[in-house]
């Protein structure tokens, strides 16, 4: 399809699907019952969504490596610290 040739359009659709999954995890109560699996799934989705925004919306896909590392590093660091905090909370 012609409309999907624009990476921004593809990214928007994926972002909507990922948001719907996160919403469903909360709405269905799966976020509570599935424990750490749901946490990992949501953080994974946030990582995918954040990476798409950085690459296709902020247009850093073809930016100098340093800036890709800085932005993706921020995302990975924050999500990693959240994993650590949730792990501590489960103990």
């Amino acid at each position: 399809m012609n409309i999907l040739q624009n990476p921004a359009n593809r990214t928007w659709i994926i972002l909507l699907i990922a948001t719907a999954i996160t919403w469903w995890l909360g709405e269905s109560g799966t976020a509570g019952s599935a424990g750490s699996n749901a946490v990992f799934l949501m953080l994974g989705l946030a990582l995918i969504k954040g990476r798409l925004v950085i690459y296709d919306f902020m247009e850093l896909r073809h930016a100098p490596t340093l800036w890709k590392i800085l932005l993706l590093g921020w995302l990975s660091f924050v999500l990693g610290m959240v994993v650590l905090a949730y792990w501590i909370g489960m103990k």
């Binding site: 919403w23 976020a31 946490v39 949501m42 919306f57 995302l75 949730y86």
Partner: peptide, 21 residues
């Protein structure tokens, strides 16, 4: 780029504060 930054932050904020438990 600034506008997308606001979006990027919310992408972390929404699951963290509203959904993850």
């Amino acid at each position: 780029a600034y506008w997308h930054m606001v979006d990027l932050v919310w992408i972390v904020l929404f699951p963290l504060v509203y959904v993850m438990r």
